[in-house]
């Protein structure tokens, strides 16, 4: 069952956050990772989330990706209030609707690219020849058709991240969530990964990328800036100057932007 194609909710935004907060309890100390975030993302958008380290980007991504629940506030995914979903349903939604890409790839050690990409299919109950075929298709889509039998240590960083993207795509999710996807890559392979994201977005997938890097953020149509767990700006990317970006995402990113020279 694909949530976005079912019932009267099909016109609802892909993601709708209302006044979402997240408080971590660290012993006696409370950490307010998110302080009332409201955000609507429509189908097919390409959104970058920027902010200094510790501003709550990953926390927001985890909540959007159903890996974590908000402390308060509402989250509707494809029109469905996820607070109503049990653990098992959440796992199913993660499996079918959301593709994750991580900074450190998170590939299984000593496992072939083919096997890595078959994982989500396994949890969806797709097995055998069909699973092999679909995994291969996804690997071809990220232009790794020649490397299906390679293990992570036989692949470059960029290739490893492409395996991870193929794994995120193989279930044909409606949303792709990427947390610092180019953070561990050099600028050249980083650009390749971004090109892939653009392609996928043009094919209709909603892409949400967390980044420090203006080069990465400028690919998106829309940039949401976080500071101390709250949204400080939300605007189309072309309206944001590099100075504004630097102040929103912290100086480190500004330097990086100049270094890369985008």
């Amino acid at each position: 069952m694909r949530m976005h194609s079912s019932g009267p909710e099909s016109n609802a935004p892909v993601i709708e956050l209302q006044n979402v907060t997240k408080i971590y309890q660290m012993g006696r100390v409370q950490v307010h990772a998110l302080r009332g975030v409201s955000l609507i993302i429509e189908r097919g958008e390409y959104v970058a989330i920027i902010g200094a380290s510790g501003s709550g980007k990953s926390t927001l991504m985890n909540i959007i990706g159903l890996l974590d629940r908000p402390t308060s506030g509402a989250y509707r995914l494809n029109g469905v209030d996820v607070a109503q979903l049990g653990k098992g349903r959440l796992a199913d939604v993660r499996n079918r609707e959301i593709g994750f890409v991580f900074q450190r790839f998170h590939l299984l050690p000593r496992t072939t690219a083919q096997r890595q990409v078959e994982l989500p299919l396994f949890y969806a109950g797709v097995r055998g020849k069909v699973a092999k075929r679909r995994a291969l298709d996804a690997l071809m889509q990220v232009r790794l058709g020649e490397r299906v039998d390679h293990r992570p240590d036989e692949l470059s960083g960029g290739q490893q991240q492409r395996v991870a993207i193929a794994r995120a795509l193989v279930m044909r999710p409606s949303i792709l969530l990427a947390d610092e996807p180019t953070g561990a890559l050099d600028s050249q392979t980083g650009r390749e990964v971004l090109a892939l994201f653009r392609e996928l977005n043009e094919a209709g997938i909603t892409v949400i990328v967390v980044t420090h890097d203006q080069g990465v953020a400028s690919q998106a149509q829309r940039i949401v800036a976080l500071r101390d767990g709250a949204i400080i700006s939300d605007a189309p990317s072309r309206t944001i100057s590099s100075t504004q970006f630097a102040s929103a995402s912290g100086d480190a990113a500004h330097h990086r932007f100049q270094e890369v020279g985008v």
Partner: peptide, 16 residues
């Protein structure tokens, strides 16, 4: 632990 988290993100249930 990282692998387990990843499998969760990819849709693994408790029983998986």
């Amino acid at each position: 632990t990282g692998e387990i988290g990843l499998r969760r993100a990819l849709g693994a249930h408790d029983r998986d």
